[in-house]
Structures are given as structure tokens and as C-alpha cells.
């Protein structure tokens, strides 16, 4: 048992150390409460709906969301728009379809089963329209960045003037939290930029938090189901472990004390 504890603590320490890996290279991220963190974490529906609005009105002109379908907007665990609302959202976009009986491609209003329409045809078109920089797809962006939600949240609020003496090229901006501090995206948010449907004040901080919450959902749409199942699974395992433990003791009682 002593040996086990020794090894286990070494193991835990090494894991702990390995996480401090990149911390020294970046500024400390801004902290906020995320409703979806923790064992019983859930998404705030209001935040998700507001976040969707931010995404649509601010980000979607450059950033695609290609792995999401419009029906996801009304599915359980997400913003939970009504099915009619989701249908209306889908129908507000023109989707490419075809070929028709003449062999031509055509556009039609979106349906629930369609994937989110992309702002550009392909990656090259996106780069060409943005000075060579590709605005990344946002479907799993939160998982694709080491800092996760804290990083995205901070970055959106991290635009400032470059330090004295540092000049930036055209189309390059200074951001406190961007890896390398240089970012090709101009500050996308400003206070009051959009008018939230639910009347919430659209400060930069509010929009940052809402859109980041939304992005956490787009990356992990089954997060709530995962947390709920996890809780049940671990309680179940603990109960079964206890039962098996006592069964084991009962079985082994037939053998004289082990050496």
C-alpha cells in the first residue's frame, strides 16, 4: 500500500507538472464563471441564444461553422430554439443544391437538415478575401486551442495598442493573449455593436462571454448528456465496486491469512 501511494503521488505530480508546460509563455487568461464547467455543469440557454446571435451578426461573415446543422439549434442540450425558430433561421440562408433535371446547380432556402452555410466557397477563397489569413472554422475552435474557452474569452477582450516602439504591418493587430501577440483579425467587438433580442446590454465582455459559451456548445453539443451520464456511471461503479469488494472479502475469508 505504501509503495502504491508512493508511485501514485509521483504519477500525479508528473501529470500536474506537465500541465504547467506552456503557462510561462503567455499572459494569464481572464477568468470568469462558466456555467458548463464542473461535474454538474450545464449550458445557460440564454447565453447560448445570445452567443448564436453574436456569431451570426459578427463572426459568420468570415468564420464558417461547417460541422453544425440548423437542426442542432433546436435539439436538446443546446440553445434550444423552438423547431419553428430553427426552421426560420435555416430558411433565412440560401443553400446550394442540385443538379436539377437540367444538370445545373441552384440555390434554395435552407432546411433543418442542412449544414450551416459557409461564408466562403472554400479555404482559398476565405484566405484571398482576408489578406492571406484564413479565418478558422469555429465548429471545434474551442477544443483546437490549448487555452480553450478562457483563451477565446480573453482574446476577444485582449486588443490593445502595441507596446512602445513596436510597429505592426498593415492588417496586423496587437492582442495581449494571442500566441505571439500578433493577430490578423481586427478587433471584432465594440460596446453596443449588436442589439440583443432579449434586451441584455451588449458590452464587449457580455458578447465575449456569450459567444464563447456558444462556441463551447458548438464544439461539445453533447456536453450536458456527457456530464449526466458520467455522474450516473461513476455512482454506479462505486456501488458495484463496494458490492464486489465485500464479495471478495467473503470469498477470501475461506483462505487462511495471506502472507
Amino acid at each position: 500500500m505504501k509503495n502504491f501511494l508512493k508511485i501514485f503521488s509521483v504519477f500525479i505530480i508528473s501529470i500536474g507538472l506537465s500541465f504547467n508546460v506552456n503557462a510561462a509563455e503567455k499572459a494569464e487568461y481572464l477568468k470568469t464563471d462558466w456555467s458548463f464547467k464542473g461535474l454538474f455543469g450545464k449550458f445557460d440557454r440564454g447565453a447560448l441564444q445570445r452567443g448564436y446571435q453574436v456569431y451570426t451578426e459578427v463572426c459568420s461573415s468570415c468564420h464558417s461553422m461547417k460541422y453544425l446543422s440548423y437542426r442542432n439549434l433546436s435539439e436538446k442540450g443546446g440553445p434550444e430554439f423552438s423547431e419553428d425558430q430553427a426552421k426560420a433561421i435555416a430558411a433565412s440562408f440560401e443553400v446550394k443544391d442540385g443538379p436539377n433535371s437540367d444538370g445545373e446547380m441552384f440555390t434554395r432556402p435552407g432546411k433543418l437538415s442542412d449544414k450551416f452555410v459557409m461564408p466562403y466557397e472554400n479555404v482559398k477563397a476565405a484566405q484571398a478575401a482576408n489578406g492571406g489569413a484564413y479565418p478558422p472554422d469555429m465548429s471545434v475552435l474551442v477544443k483546437a486551442r490549448g487555452g480553450g474557452v478562457d483563451y477565446i474569452y480573453s482574446l476577444l477582450q485582449g486588443y490593445e495598442d502595441p507596446p512602445l516602439g513596436e510597429t505592426l504591418d498593415d492588417g496586423v493587430y496587437y492582442n495581449k493573449y494571442m500566441y505571439g501577440n500578433k493577430i490578423r483579425m481586427a478587433n471584432p467587438l465594440s460596446d453596443g455593436l449588436i442589439e440583443y433580442v432579449d434586451g441584455t446590454e451588449a458590452s464587449i465582455e457580455q458578447m465575449s462571454k456569450d459567444v464563447t459559451t456558444f462556441l463551447m456548445w458548438t464544439a461539445e453539443p453533447h456536453l450536458e448528456a456527457r456530464h449526466q451520464m458520467g455522474f450516473k456511471a461513476i455512482i454506479y461503479l462505486i456501488i458495484l465496486t463496494a458490492l464486489v469488494y465485500f464479495s471478495m472479502k467473503r470469498v477470501w475469508s475461506r483462505v487462511e491469512t495471506k502472507v
Binding site: 454506479y236 456501488i239 464479495s247
Partner: peptide, 13 residues
């Protein structure tokens, strides 16, 4: 009873 309970709970899993 202990063994039966263990089997039953195990089967659920």
C-alpha cells in the same frame, strides 16, 4: 444475498 446482489447490479451495468 451479497453474491446475488452483486450479480444483479453487475448485470445492469
Amino acid at each position: 444475498f451479497l453474491f446475488t446482489a452483486t450479480y444483479a447490479v453487475g448485470a445492469v451495468g
